[in-house]
Write a protein that binds this DNA or RNA. Structure first.
Length: 685
DNA sequence: ACGGATTAAACC
DNA sequence: TGGTTTAAT
């Protein structure tokens, strides 16, 4: 019995799809009269015409480049059309581009595993689709090959002939083709179709690379732009890399690439071949060394991860030079703007994708004018994320103050204006999908608890948050709705009149809220009630409040049943019952329970997220443990405190434990791992 | 101290 | 783990 050759069985078909000057295309779709004209997208038009962040290909011909100023662009290309990025919260607002990006993702994810790599790029694993196509209708039998597929570039075969297309067709359809080449051909046909779908459905063009791994696909997608695709057959990899400047390689555009050039005299990827793996390891560490050795041979085992949504959200702004923020008041103002945007975005994420963010992080850059050693960096700070824009603001300000104290080194004069903030950002990370659909745990909380009446809940919610700031006037329509939701979600606060978050508070908040968030968001998707907007109207099964002067009402509002629920949460969670003084009381006093909104209200405009969520349910029942482990990052065991689970009824325990994966975190880093899956285009002995 | 605003991931 | 650094777009 001959052992099957691994290359044949493990040859993957990977595509990288890259939108052409994406922001420009988005603006041109909005203003079709700009189509065909040299166009660029700028932000902050006030200073020197603003900074360019996207440039159309017409404008590039005139020498306009990214990172030029609007004024410079006008000089080299006088009739360039400059479009400003929308502004909201006093800063650039990229939401329209994000939305356009997700339109594209929803189309590109139709044919296989799809990984959103950035706002305008995806990787696709088309192996299965290509194999199916090959076995059902192999290229050589195809009568009418799509024009777009025939326009593919194939590295290594065409020689700039005018009759290129016939060469490509011959290459596609030749009978003696390598199996892997046939797979790539099928991949190219599929990608061509996807690109046409994207164009038809969104009016956007894109370019693509088709190869056996991500690295090569990414390389290829940039080789013929715009609106073209490039195939990298295994046989052409060696020549391709031999002359490829090292800095063109992803991950080598920065310091590592520079070090390779300067320290090893490596100028092309091919130059790397002469170094042994050990040599590279000793200079750059095992992982990086092995990784370098591999990429120089076109080997890259990175898999396409099925992920259509971003892993974090951030909102930030720079305050260059004279604009640096020098008072707490001004920092507070901008923090509020940034937090407002962030809050809206995680709220939208929760509503549309049923995802919950767990960590709030503040980043800043700062200088000290008087201090001699001003080289110190402003430290990042993070804490558990509490939903609701005013909570976020409050926490972000505390994080900032804490960071500023560290930055200034325990000296007191914080309004000394001896410091300045040159950039500020807040971000939300550790975003977990919540289990969608009906499950016993959700049924348990809904049917088992009579105190869960939504009308009562709304009232409760409104009364609980009298301190919310007035809606800003420019919020209308949908924003209004969002704001309401914001106010009513997770109003947990560590009752902090203290000047900073202590470690204890942080830890406590983290543990005690995670379970609540879990149930809250899961619950909200599981009822079958018909409501116009279940999310805004009844979304508060469990809430904690810090509003001291409403304590009486809150206690009155919660029934007996809810207090028993409360007890087992608290007893199950050590950090809840431990040495908390005032915050402990707040916590105890304000938990209540409610029913949820409707189960199946997913907006139909969000096909991609639906697909992602559905895949969770499907895999739960049909996949093996191992397969689950790979996909089940969605379930995030961190959402559930193990101690709490013990207190739950047995059938609920079973269900929850089914979601939990064993603590993973193997020490295999991306680099140097999963050698078995490496595609090896270069024959060895 | 203008290449801005975001994202991701390795590393320690 | 949180926080820092690197890198890409």
């Amino acid at each position: 019995m001959p052992i099957p050759r691994p290359e044949l069985h493990e040859a993957r078909v990977i595509a990288h799809v890259d939108m052409d000057c994406f922001y420009v295309q988005v603006e041109q779709r909005k203003q079709p009269e700009l189509r065909g004209l040299p166009t660029a997208v700028v932000q902050y038009n006030s200073w020197k015409g603003g900074g360019l962040i996207a440039v159309s290909y017409e404008a590039r011909k005139h020498g306009v480049k990214r990172s030029m100023r609007g004024d410079e662009a006008k000089e080299v290309c006088p009739n360039i059309q400059l479009v400003q990025v929308p502004v909201a919260h006093g800063k650039a607002d990229l939401n329209s581009y994000r939305h356009a990006g997700s339109e594209v993702v929803s189309i590109l994810s139709r044919k296989g595993k799809c990984e959103r790599a950035s706002i305008d790029e995806v990787y696709l694993d088309l192996t299965d689709a290509a194999e199916s196509l090959l076995s059902e209708t192999p290229p050589e039998t195809l009568e009418d090959m799509h024009e777009e597929a025939l326009k593919s570039h194939v590295l290594g075969i065409n020689l700039e002939a005018s009759s290129k297309e016939s060469f490509v067709k011959d290459w596609f359809c030749r009978n003696d083709a390598d199996h892997r080449d046939k797979l790539l051909t099928c991949g190219a046909i599929i990608v061509a179709q996807l690109r046409m779908d994207v164009l038809r459905e969104t009016q956007f063009t894109c370019s693509a690379g088709i190869a056996h791994n991500k690295m090569l696909a990414k390389l290829a997608s940039g080789m013929h732009k715009p609106a073209q695709q490039t195939i990298v057959p295994a046989s052409s990899v060696k020549d391709l890399l031999a002359s490829l400047p090292i800095k063109k390689m992803k991950q080598l555009g920065g310091k590592l690439g520079t070090s390779l050039q300067r320290d090893l005299g490596v100028n092309t990827v091919g130059d790397l071949l002469q170094f042994s793996e050990e040599k590279l390891q000793e200079r750059y560490g095992v992982n990086t060394g092995t990784w370098l050795w591999n990429i120089s041979r076109g080997i890259s085992g990175d898999e396409v991860v099925d992920r259509l949504l971003p892993k974090s959200h951030g909102s930030g702004k720079t305050f260059p030079g004279p604009q640096a923020l020098k008072t707490i008041a001004s920092v507070n103002h901008w923090l509020n703007e940034l937090c407002e945007e962030l809050s809206e975005r995680i709220q939208t994420d929760l509503k549309e994708n049923k995802r919950v963010a767990h960590t709030l992080t503040l980043h800043a850059r700062a200088f000290k004018s008087n201090d001699s050693e001003s080289a110190k960096k402003f430290p990042s700070k993070s804490c558990p994320l509490r939903y609701g824009s005013e909570k976020i603001r409050e926490d972000a300000l505390k994080l900032f103050e804490s960071g500023l104290r560290d930055f200034l080194g325990s000296r007191v004069e914080t309004q000394d204006s001896s410091w300045g903030i040159t950039s500020l950002s807040v971000s939300a990370s550790r975003i977990n999908a919540t289990p969608a659909g009906t499950s016993s745990i959700l049924r348990f909380f809904q049917s088992g608890n009579p105190s869960s009446s939504s009308s009562k809940l709304d009232q409760f919610t409104e009364e609980t948050l009298p301190l919310s700031p007035p809606c800003s006037d420019n919020h209308l329509g949908q924003d209004q709705e969002l704001h309401q939701f914001t106010k009513s979600t997770f109003p947990l606060s560590p009752s902090s009149s203290k000047s900073h978050l202590s470690q204890d508070q942080v830890a406590q908040t983290s543990q005690s809220t995670s379970i609540l968030r879990f149930f809250q968001s899961g619950n909200s998707s599981s009822s079958s009630k018909q409501q116009s907007d279940p999310f805004t109207e009844a979304t508060l099964p469990l809430s904690l409040s810090d509003s001291g002067n409403h304590l009486g009402q809150i206690q009155a509002a919660q029934g007996k049943q809810s207090s028993s629920i409360l007890r087992f949460f608290q007893s199950g969670n050590p950090s809840c019952s431990s040495s908390k003084q005032e915050s402990d009381q707040d916590t105890e006093a304000s938990v209540s329970l409610s029913t949820s909104g409707s189960a199946s209200h997913l907006g139909q405009d969000k096909v991609e997220q639906t697909k992602q969520l559905n895949s969770i349910e499907n895999t739960r029942d049909s996949l093996s443990q191992d397969e689950r482990r790979n996909q089940e990052w969605e379930y995030k065991p961190e959402d559930i405190d193990p101690n709490v689970i013990d207190e739950l009824p047995p059938e609920i325990q079973r269900e929850i434990r089914g979601w939990l994966r064993p603590t993973k975190r193997t020490n295999t880093s991306k680099r140097g791992s999963s050698i078995a899956h490496y595609f090896s285009p270069i024959k060895k002995g």
